[in-house]
Design a protein around this nucleic acid. Structure first.
Lengths: 132, 132
DNA sequence: ATCAATTGCGTTATGCTATAACGTGTGGCA
DNA sequence: TGCCACACGTTATAGCATAACGCAATTGAT
């Protein structure tokens, strides 16, 4: 069941998995130069596939990428994802909530809008950075 | 009460108000060349102010901007905004829903996360483009 | 009135993000 | 064997955003 990844895809996924927070494509490129990466497209192509497989997420509000925090059940098993992004430490928390999905579904339905992909990103400050 | 805009800010706001859909900063620049605009910063500086005034919104998922559809009550009077973005015709619908705000508030609270700004963008197909 | 602080403006240069377009190599398979 | 699909590598280019500089106009306190 687990998707068989190519070498480039594995390298990019590893970089994201081991990172503290989200990484931009060019940051990934720099991290992988020692492994033979030389051009942005090598990263973007791998990212596209990993997104397709549901193994990583793209954070639209900061043009960067994170490994999915539910590595067990890939493939878009989980519905809408909301991200809490700390502007101080960069930490990203992945959240799921049926209530939100329900409300979004109602909103879209009211407009007769056919949803393909939903982005929810909350910018703010995480517990650690607030308590200090 | 209405914010007094500078010439550049007015021009940018007009461009967005009269546009069919969202515009990128560089598209705005091109539209305003006849009015003396020559550099991206002229656009970005105006956009920053208009965002600050709550007169326009930034669509993170497409790096572009739209005029707020509630021009009456500026200044962030309305809470969280969700955008339905049609991938066929580019039309953007602005939506508000207390239920979503409530759920997001609960989610954030559960993580002890202090929310500064929330982005909700739904990509898909609008009624017109679906029915055809 | 004047000085200082703020704000907007214009320009040049630069950096970051993403994709187009081309060709190569490999593995599966009729 | 010939075809197809796919991943890959490379070069070039397009699209998005900001840094850093200096000037001009405004405000507002003294």
């Amino acid at each position: 069941m687990a998707q068989q990844l190519t070498r480039n895809q594995s390298l990019v996924l590893d970089a994201l998995t081991h990172a503290e927070g989200p990484l931009s494509a060019y940051t990934i490129l720099d991290k992988l130069r020692d492994h033979g990466f030389r051009a942005p497209l090598q990263v973007y192509r791998a990212l596209d596939k990993l997104l397709e497989f549901g193994m990583i997420h793209r954070l639209e509000s900061m043009n960067s990428f994170v490994a999915c925090s539910h590595p067990d059940h890939h493939h878009h098993d989980h519905g809408v994802t909301a991200f809490a992004i700390c502007e101080d430490c960069g930490q990203v928390t992945e959240m799921h909530d049926a209530g939100i999905e329900e409300r979004l579904s109602v909103l879209a339905g009211r407009e007769h809008f056919k949803t393909e992909k939903t982005t929810i990103e909350i910018r703010g400050h995480c517990q650690n950075c607030t308590s200090g």
